[in-house]
Amino acid sequence: MKRAQKENLIKGFFCLFALLSIFFLLGIVIVLFKEGLPIFKVTTFKEFLFGRFWYPTYEPPDFGILPLLLGSLWVTFGALIVAVPLGVAGAFYISEVASPKKKEFIKPVIELLAGIPSVVYGFFGMVVVAPLVAKIFRLPVGLNAFTASLILGIMAIPTITSISEDAISAVPKRFKEASYALGANKWETITKVTLPAAAGGISTAIILGMARVIGETMTVLMVAGGAPIIPHSFFEPLRTMTATIAAEMGETVVGSLHFHALFAIAIVLFVITLSFNILADLLTQRFRKRLG
């Protein structure tokens, strides 16, 4: 009796902690909408999302986040060009090709990349990569979408590699054995059997990598240049939604239109990352069903 009570108490205690994070999330969402929605009293949803100019402190102000939205999508796209081939190929190497000894060394090293603070990446990009990019491409300045994509791509590799690797090793052994039995070599087995079987998990990895990149703040603030213009090429500076919030939130007047507009950007960002996560979840589920 007493023991059961104790057990219940401990259960309740842990349940409380589990619920606490849900509670915090709920609190964040409520604050986000409470502070973000007032901006739509002075501007319409369409004007906000598709306005081409971001001049929040001028008289009269312009609250158009299209350049910021496209800026975020543009660097995310660029980062994926870097991260997907490297990340997925790395995952295949670790899981299918490398000897157990090499695997034991490479996997933790790649995961270590995820542990480097983003401000360090940003600093590295600003001091080392940006001047190099400017020199190689003969640009007046190296702080642009290209440099940002390159660095964000490197930052997304650990996410993509480690989740892809899990998906690849989850492919049942009998699939590969059947392939070898039919006379296929290793390359044919990887490309024609393992890759399609793990595709769902790899897509999940890529989407979670995208969520990581689009939410990244410090690096893009330091490296992307920060000009709120609609991007036309990779060699132009651009500004993302996250960088705008980080640069302007600290000094804006609490409760002003600018303040509400920054929260409204946060809502847009929240909706984007939420849908990425839901998409990743759906893909994982479908993938499980197919293999099951």
Binding site: Y58, A134, P140, L143, G225, G226, A227, I229, E236
Partner: peptide, 27 residues
């Protein structure tokens, strides 16, 4: 009170403006 050209680069602190200028010839 006129608008800054939209393609101007943005830096978030005095120090980072100075360090960018230091490394950029036409800045």
């Amino acid at each position: 009170k006129q608008r800054v050209r939209p393609d101007a680069l943005l830096q978030a602190s005095n120090a980072s403006v100075a360090s960018t200028i230091k490394r950029t010839k036409g800045a």
